[in-house]
Amino acid sequence: MRIPKLLQAVLVLAGVYFGFIVVFDVILEAVIPSSLLVMYMFFVTAGVFMVFTYDEEGTRELVAPIKALVEDPSKRVWRNIVFVIVPLAAGAGTYVQMQPSFEAPLELRTIHPAPPTTAKIYGKRVNLLKLENPFRKLEKEDPEQFRELVEEGAAVYIQNCQYCHGDKLDGNGPYAAGLNPTPLNFQDVGTIAQLQESYLFWRIATGGPGLPKEAAPWISSMPVWQNFLKEDEIWKTILFLYDYTGHSPRTWGNE
């Protein structure tokens, strides 16, 4: 038996919806955010209706059951049932959506706050557009010394940073569960791999209080590390962050 087009469309949409949930939530064990699922389903629905309505024949077949329900005198009973159920369902949906809850409101968090052009760090005004890691050139010039610096950076990291950012640099340190938002995961390709070293230097040295006035208020419990670490220690830690994760800092020249 051939499945009517309207039912086909509904089945496809239901299949995609539950497919997303099964694949993400069950198989991959990484829940799909409900906000994103709504956006995804909106455009999947648009795509499905585009395919079902690009010709007259398909469109007629798709809307025929709806048309019949509204116009066909023999479907009076069904029509009345649907006409009662649809507004009730819409009302129930609205009620559930509008009902006050104890859930904290959703937040549009900015992962990368934009750095200022210049910042006062260690008592000096530095231009973040031009600032470079003084040790980076040793990666090629003196690989042995570079390795030593990376190890020194690792020691600084383990003594100071891993409590929040984790010993695997995945943002999952022992204190991470107590913080909201949770510390940044440096393994993620969307964090330090996207940034220049000067950005990391600014962010580490000036911490949460150094975040820009724009788009305030910020939520960051990052300490102002220039009060606790030496300038060289921050640069060495940055070497370690990139070395351990295997990412390269953002640059504009070739290697």
Partner: peptide, 20 residues
Amino acid sequence: TLVLTNEELKALGGPHHKIL
């Protein structure tokens, strides 16, 4: 930057989503 509810944040263990 994903918009996550607290439940989703907890389930993911943080704002990082390994697939998305």
